[in-house]
Amino acid sequence: MNERLLGILVNSFPRLLLYLFKVTIPLTVSIFTISVILAFILALIQVLDIRVLKTLTRIYVWVFRGTPLIVQMYIIFYGLPSLGISLNAFPSAVIAFSMNYAAYMSETIRAAIQSVPQGQIEAGYMIGLTYGQIMRRIVIPQAARVAFPTMFGSLIGLTKDSSLAASITVVEMFKTAQQIASKYFEPFALYCEAAVIYLMLNTVLTLLQAFLERKLTWKQPKEESEKIPALQADTE
């Protein structure tokens, strides 16, 4: 590797990291947060079987899973201004991504909620819990555990897919790499460098997932179970 190329790579690295932390990660985190909340509401509407809303939800899922994300982004960023609604690139990307991801995630969450055995719900009723208490204390915690790996997979997918936002002029890490690449005519090196940074980010996330999944099982190591526990089931 020649010195010039090495210099470009070394000099561009902090700049790419800057855009990773300044744009890519905030973009990913906002999209993920919004889409999880939205997906949860969509899933609940279906599980609770709320008549009219349920039909609307099905239509929503059908439309947003059935059309490409990039088309949705173009409609919001380039299309809506002609209807008098002009949004900046970043919020346009957040809206399009969130609506698209929520459509997929709502199916994951719905399936997870429905995977909790009916018998536990009946047992809940028999000991005097209300439907709301059963959902909050029994169904949702177990559904969360079931949905967790898939949801985390979506998060990892999102860190990479967020580069699609570059197509509607959001300057995130990939777009920054693109700019540097065209400035120095070194596309191969710069795109590889961007790839390495994505890979580093997702290595961290993958390790985090494994760690959290271990935390989330309802099993206790033997030593711990011998200890006298703190009073846990108090409040609410």
Binding site: Q120, R137, A233, E236
Partner: peptide, 20 residues
């Protein structure tokens, strides 16, 4: 049909503390 996300103790407490 024990609640899988709760210990034996929490299963029993549930009908007393949460429900009653």
């Amino acid at each position: 049909n024990l609640f899988r996300n709760m210990t034996v103790r929490q299963n029993i407490l549930e009908g007393l503390v949460t429900a009653r």
